[in-house]
Every structure is written in C-alpha cells, then in structure tokens.
Design a protein around this nucleic acid. Structure first.
Length: 797
DNA sequence: ATAGGGTTAG
C-alpha cells in the first residue's frame, strides 16, 4: 500500500520543476532514492532538507538504504524517528538486521512489532526466519511456525521456504521435507531444501531432491547447482556430478562463476584434479575466488608445493592479492602435512596482509600448530581470538588429544558447557575419542547421555566414536548396541565395530561382520583391512588372514601399506611361524620400520627364539637406539634362556644409553573411579586390606592348581624370591582390589599399559573360576575376557 | 562462489 500524496512544493525545493503539472513528489523522491549514486548519508541530508522525512514510506526506504550499506545503527535511528511507523517500517528494520546477521536484533524487533499491534507479512516472516535459520533459534522458529499456521500463511511459498531453511539448517530434515511435500513448490523452495541437505551433510538426499525438482519440470538455478556439486563433492559422487556438469553446460549455467568454483571443488574432492584444472584454465581472466578455488584444490590434494606455486603466480603474474580464504586453505594444507615451518611462514604472511585475525584463519592456525605438536602456539592463537567459535574449540580439542593430553581435552570439553560456545558434533566426537583413548567409560557414558538428550545419536561420526569408546573401555556389547541402533552405517562405523571385535579376540565375529559389510555394499578401505587382519592375527585365523591380505589388492585395488605388512608379520609371529615371518619381512617392497621389528621381536620373545630375537633386536636398535622395548624384550629372552649374564649386559647398555623402561601399571574400575597400581605398590590408602586379600586369593588359587610360572620373573634370584616378585605384579594387585571393592558377581575391569604377564594370565584364569567372576583385562594389544577358568584369547597372544 | 574442525588403524 503506497501512500500517494501531493503536497505544496517548497520554494527552494530542488526537485520542483513544473509548477503547472501536478507532481507526485513522493515518486520523485523515491526515484531519487532508487537511482541516486549518493551514499545513504547524502540522501538522508537531502531528504531532510527537502522536508521529506515526515513521509513514512520515504523513511522506510531510507532505513533500507542504510541497512544495505551496513549502517544498521543509522537505519535504527531513522526508524526511531519515523512519526507514524507502518508495518513496512518494521519489516525494513527486521530485514536489515537479518541480512546483516544481527539475528537477535531481528528477533527482538519482530517481537516489538507484534507488541505494537502490527501483523507480520510474508517478508517479515521470511526475514525473521532467516535469522532463526542461521543462528540456530529452532525453538523460536517453531513458535513462528505456529503463528504462521494461525495467520493463514501455510500456503505461502516465501514463508514456507523460510521454514524449510530453519528446520533443515538445524537438523530437523524430516519436518523440513514434510513442509516441502505439502506446499505448492517453486524453484526457490526446492533449492532451499537442496541447500539444507547439502550443508547438513546429507548428500544422497540433496541429490534425490535435485532430481525430483528437475522431474517436476523446474529449471535448476545456479544456487541449486552449486549445492548439488557440494553434495557430490562430499560423497565423491563423480558420476552424478559429471551428469550435472553436462546439464550446466547445456543450460549455460557453467558460465556462472559460482558454478565454476563449485565445479572445481567437486572435481578435486572426487579425485579428478585434471578436470578441475581444465575448468580453471578456461576461466581467464581470473579473480581471487577462482585462484583460491584452484589453490584449495592443490592444497587439499596433498600437493602443497603446487598450491604455493599458484600463490606466487597469482600475486606476481595476475596481480591478485590472496584473501582470508586463500590463507585458510593454505594453512590447513600445512596442517595436513604437519608442516609447522610452512605454517609459520603463512601465519606471518597473513598477519602482514591483515588476515590473521579472521576466525577461519585462526581456526586453521590452531589446527596447524596443534597437529604439528606445537600445542603452546595453538593456545596462543586461541587465547588471542576475539570470539572463540565451535571450530576453534574443536580444533583445540582434537589437538590436545592427538598430543596425548586427553585428560586435559576432557576438562576443556567440560568447561565448554559453561561458556558461550556450545559443543557441536565435531567437539563431541573428539571428546568421545579422548574417552576411548583413556578407556574412560564413566565420562564416556556421561557424554553419551548428553548425546541422547541432544538427539545426536544418529550422527555417524559421533556414533563411530561411541562404538570405539565402548569397545576400548571393555564392553563390546554396548558397542554392538550403538552399532545396531545406527540406521545409516557407513564405512567408518563398520570398521569401528569390526575393530572392536578384533580387539576383544572375537575374530570369527569380526570376519562375519566384514562379510555383512561387503554384502551391504559398503567398500572397505585400508583402515578396514588393518582391523580385519588384526582380527585374524588375534584369533589364530592365519590362512584367512593371508587370504584377506591378497584380496585387498586383487579385489579392492588397495595397495598394502606398511601397517598391513605389520599385521601379517604379527599374524605369522603369533603363530610361531618365525622363519616364514622373517622371509616375509625380507620380501617386503619397503624398508622395515621399527614397528615391524618390534612386532617380530615380540614374537621371538613369545616363542622363545633366541637367535632370531637377537637378530631382530639388532635391526630394531639400529633404527632406534632409544627403543625401550628392544632392550627389555631382548633381556627377557636372555633371561628366559638362563643367559643371565647377557640379560644383565643388555640392561646395562640400556641404562648407559639412558633409556628407561616404561613401568608396568594396572588400573581397576571400582565404584566409579579408577585406581592405579604399580608392581609392589604400597601407595594405595587401603594397602593392608589389598595385600591381605591378595595373599588369600593366591593361596586359594594354589589350592585350585595354580603353579607360579617363575620363568616370568625375569630376575636372577632364587625360586621363592621369583615367586614373591610375581605375586606383587600390578595386574594381580588390581584384581585383588577389584574383588574387595565390587559387588559380588559383577565383572572386574582391569587395564594395563603393557602386555599382560604370562604368570598373571594363568593366575587370573583360576581367580575367575574360584571367585566366580568375569575379569576383563585390557592390555596394550587386546582384551582378555576371563571366565570359568578360561580366557577368551585361548592362550593365543 | 573460494576458507578453518570430527569419526575407524598405527
């Protein structure tokens, strides 16, 4: 509703041209507003001078102009001085705030408008919904939804699109889709849904929706296409993306720069850097966006060198300056390579160019420093951030974890709840991984309950981290139930559960699941094969393992990595096929690493092969003279063979080189806290009770047939002293305390930082029989489930 | 339009 008013012209009115013709001054003023090249301030001054600010519609347009140029406080001032505000005035201010990202002000203005008795129209709803969408005010959005239904806007395409955006951006895809299904659909509403799916990491749904849109005879816009390519990039959908590329060429949309930039991104992420480069080469003259897209392509394709070369070319030859996107890309590339040197240079460059305080750049810097092991500098960047966001927090979380500060990571995570940054799925998954690494099921369960409350159970990343946490902390049943409840099981979830069973020594079950995974059409990757091969080696499935090792290359075209060779060495080594293992090592297409020799040496120790053990330790110490396992295992082999002189000499060399043995420690979970023990430990406040229990236990198992395996007391002392040393091993102390502190019949969970000792293994089997308890010991390489006098490992470890 | 983070193994 436009107010048409004719007023007497002011004598000095510069707009006044013809006294005779009736002039619609308002239209003239509006024309001026729309076509003028004047800044908003200039216009404001002229309109004020000409006396036009008493007209509501003129003021409304001025509000619009001010907010368009980002001067929201001026817009607000004009709005405040409008003598007679109408609903357009309110809507202009709401949409201004919304477009400038002042979501809270937009919401607040909307509420004030209602208080003043104005009914929102489709534009007011559209604007305020956009704010709800981007700022996560889902609950407010739901209330608006109610109001919209009540006011009869449920058929309005514009308003419905806003609702779809609000719901899909905040994880409520089902509701968003329901609205779309019910409404009269136009290109815009389809596109909003596609964008929602694409940004919400639901690529399949995005692609299906796109196909449906075309089927209904709509033409895709450049916005629908860019989102489509984003979805294809995420799922490496080379086929779907290429088809849409043809569509883009046919419709001429390929000429649109935004489409090209997203095409480059899609081809790169699908592994086709060649096509990406072709599109780039046809895009001259270049701008910063195109160059950055291509730099990002190289940066995330492991080709940092080429990315840096392009940066030079862009600056020197095209005279284009990098922007914050360019820096973020390059710094994250340095992060992927753990190249703190390059990262630091880029940091300095970004600082000089004035981009180092941009949130994305800071996020990349934190990740770069943390991944490179420089957690202090990561913290410096983090602490200097003006506004810390989700990404910087989760970068820091995963950085703490990868540097071994898992306890600190969990404290940081818990502090987040009292801060303005709410943990998102990335942060939650990271924290869960810290729990997994610490085998801390107590904190893991607490976070699990938060996950249930926030409805994030079906997030595949979170679910995978939970499967891992439950498996690593000893309850494979819980891992299984998380896995079963997951509707969309991806490769990582399958791999996590397979690995869980592998660690628990249930190799057959792991292979069964591997078969189901293949049947479900999920392709294994190199990680899956590490887990599958581990499952074989822990469960004496030697021929199966060797067969799978071959299958990896022949069927799945995965070139075995050193990790896979290590699995086979372990497989043969555990089986005692040491000669064969050594042949296998010598036939490897790459140089054996410390990992390979350490595994082989461990096998020599287990199967008591002195000669091969000496050889293996020689190779291992050549590669790493500080490898404590090399000395300890060799000394143990000597000791086991009664070569006490050599054993002593090995230990002396170790001492001389200042290499320290990692002390063996065992933890036991008693009444919701972890209690730690070393060998012969007397630090526990209940030590008298614990030792009394320990001696009682040992005397009872002796009656049941336990004979101390004194070969495992690797010191040159007499038999009774050896027995005394064995009794005080940390895992026995932990089990004794577990028996005191837990409810009769409940399982006892022990964790050890080294491999379980053979004598303790024998003793705990009988403890499980005599005391009718399930005892679960997780050592450094796997789980042992003791029950009824037997262990799940079947003596095969 | 181009940008920063998370999940499985070792």
């Amino acid at each position: 509703m436009t107010v048409i008013a004719t007023v007497a012209p002011l004598p000095s009115n510069p707009l006044h041209r013809n006294r005779d013709a009736p002039i619609n001054f308002l239209n003239v003023a509006k024309n001026l507003l729309q076509n003028s090249h004047l800044q908003a301030e200039g216009l404001h001054a002229r309109l004020l001078k000409a006396g036009f600010l008493s007209f509501t519609s003129i003021c409304n347009t001025l509000v619009h102009r001010y907010s368009d140029s980002g001067q929201i406080s001026h817009a607000r001032q004009v709005f405040d001085e409008i003598p007679q505000r109408n609903h357009v005035s309110w809507t202009s201010l709401i949409s201004g705030n919304s477009r400038l990202g002042n979501s809270e002000d937009a919401l607040e203005t909307f509420l004030r408008m209602l208080d003043h008795g104005f009914h929102p129209n489709q534009f007011a709803f559209g604007s305020v919904l956009r704010s709800c969408s981007v700022s996560g005010y889902l609950e407010f959005g739901e209330q608006l939804h109610g109001l919209i239904m009540k006011m009869g806007f449920f058929c309005n395409v514009f308003v419905n699109s806003g609702l779809i955006s609000t719901y899909s951006r905040n994880g409520r895809f089902d509701t968003a889709l329901e609205i779309l299904e019910r409404m009269e659909k136009d290109v815009f509403s389809w596109t909003v849904m596609i964008i929602g799916f694409s940004n919400g990491r639901k690529p399949f749904e995005a692609i299906t929706t796109f196909a449906r849109m075309l089927k209904e005879g709509m033409m895709a816009s450049e916005f629908a296409l860019t989102s489509f390519f984003k979805a294809c990039a995420y799922m490496e959908g080379l086929r779907e993306g290429s088809q849409a590329h043809c569509y883009a060429i046919k419709t001429g949309l390929e000429d649109v720069m935004s489409v090209r930039a997203s095409l480059i991104d899609f081809y790169v992420k699908s592994g086709d850097i060649h096509n990406a480069r072709l599109i780039y080469d046809r895009s001259s003259p270049y701008d910063v966006v195109m160059c950055t897209a291509m730099i990002g392509a190289y940066a995330h394709n492991g080709n940092t060198k080429q990315a840096i070369e392009m940066l030079h070319e862009m600056i020197r030859e095209f005279d284009i300056s990098p922007n914050e996107f360019t820096f973020a890309s390059l710094i994250s590339s340095a992060a992927e390579n753990g190249d703190v040197g390059l990262g630091t240079i880029l940091h300095a460059f970004a600082l000089k160019a004035g981009y180092s305080a941009i949130t994305h750049v800071e996020g990349a810097l934190i990740d770069m420093y943390a991944k490179g092991g420089n957690i202090e500098d990561a913290f410096t960047v983090f602490n200097n951030m003006e506004t810390k966001d989700n990404v910087s927090c989760s970068s820091l979380l995963s950085g703490l974890s990868s540097n071994g500060y898992d306890q600190e990571a969990l404290e940081f995570f818990s502090d987040l709840h009292n801060s303005s940054v709410k943990p998102d799925p990335f942060a939650v998954a990271s924290a869960m991984t810290s729990c997994a690494k610490l085998s801390d099921q107590l904190v893991g369960k607490q976070i699990h309950s938060q996950i249930i409350k926030s409805g994030l159970e079906s997030d595949t990343c979170i679910a995978s981290s939970m499967i891992d946490m439950y498996a690593k902390s000893g309850t494979i049943e819980d891992a299984q139930s998380v896995f079963e409840n997951l509707s969309a099981k991806d490769r990582i979830a399958w791999t996590a559960i397979i690995d869980g069973y592998a660690q628990h020594g249930q190799g057959r079950k792991a292979l069964e699941l591997f078969g189901e995974m293949i049947e479900a059409g999920i392709n294994p990757n190199e990680v899956t094969f590490v887990s599958v091969l581990n499952a074989c080696s822990h469960s004496q499935l030697i021929e199966e393992g060797i067969w799978l090792f071959g299958l990896m290359k022949s069927e799945y075209r995965i070139e075995p990595l050193i990790e896979h060779y290590a699995c086979v060495v372990d497989l043969l080594g555990r089986a005692g096929r040491l000669e064969e293992g050594l042949e296998f090592i010598n036939a490897m297409p790459m140089q054996p690493t410390t990992l390979i020799w350490r595994l082989f040496l461990g096998a020599c120790r287990n199967h008591n092969n002195l000669n091969l053990g000496i050889q293996a330790s020689k190779f291992l110490l050549e590669l790493d003279p500080e490898d404590d396992a090399a000395y300890v295992l060799l000394a143990n082999i000597y000791a086991f063979n009664d070569q006490w002189g050599n054993a002593l000499e090995t230990r002396n060399i170790m001492k001389l080189r200042n290499v320290r043995k990692v002390p063996g420690l065992s933890w036991v979970l008693v009444q919701n806290s972890y209690h730690v023990f070393g060998a012969g430990d007397t630090c526990h406040p209940q030590k008298e009770l614990i030792y009394k229990k320990l001696y009682e236990v040992m005397s009872n198992v002796k009656k049941a047939g336990y004979v101390p395996v004194t070969e495992f007391a690797l010191h040159d002392v007499n038999e009774s002293e050896k027995e005394r040393l064995l009794v005080h091993h940390s895992e026995k102390l932990a089990v004794a305390f577990g028996l005191i502190g837990s409810v009769e019949g409940s399982p006892i969970r022990v964790f050890k930082n080294l491999r379980i000792c053979g004598d303790c293994h024998a003793a705990i089997k009988l403890i499980s029989l005599v005391y009718r308890r399930t005892i679960i010991v997780r050592d450094v390489s796997r789980f042992h489930h003791f029950s009824e006098g037997a262990c799940s490992c079947g003596e095969y470890w």
